[in-house]
């Protein structure tokens, strides 16, 4: 029988979260957001990427009051806070990037001023490299 090693001490992987859906029509956006928050506990490197309609997830001024649904736009602030925390803490080896694909953003008439959180804008070609060098990609 194969022996598996489940020792995780000191293991560092880069996980990319690929958000491609708008926030309220389907459950994808919220599910990916929850998995990002859970993964923060494991201090892994992460790329939180917004592509296609996923860029609408972080559009500011969302107000779901009339839908009787919870508005989870403020929750993305945790990602920003975790990233800043990790950047400032020298003892912490955790590199997070919050990335928007330029082509997706522009196709939807958006600029970085429309977003609730601070993002890094990359071209398709640059983003292709980020995906290719990830250890795991979680789609949504």
């Amino acid at each position: 029988m194969t022996e598996y090693n489940f020792e995780t001490e000191g293991v560092k992987k880069t996980i990319t979260y690929l958000n491609r859906k708008a926030p309220y029509g389907t459950i994808y956006a919220l599910e990916v957001l929850e998995s990002v928050l859970i993964s923060a506990a494991f201090e892994q490197h992460a790329n939180i990427v917004f592509v296609d309609d996923g860029v609408f997830q972080i559009k500011k001024d969302q107000d779901t009051a009339d839908l009787d649904m919870k508005c989870f736009l403020p929750t993305y602030g945790i990602i920003e806070m975790e990233k800043e925390d990790a950047d400032e803490d020298e003892d912490m080896d955790m590199n997070w990037r919050i990335i928007v694909e330029k082509e997706s953003m522009e196709a939807r008439g958006l600029t970085t001023d429309d977003f609730k959180i601070e993002v890094e804008v990359l071209s398709s070609a640059e983003l292709a490299d980020v995906l290719d060098t990830s250890d795991a990609v979680i789609g949504g």
């Binding site: 928050l37 923060a40 506990a41 919870k70 508005c71 989870f72 403020p74 929750t75 602030g77 945790i78």
Partner: peptide
């Protein structure tokens, strides 16, 4: 109040 979710 800020994030609409309880902290870890």
């Amino acid at each position: 109040n800020e994030y609409q979710i309880a902290p870890a």
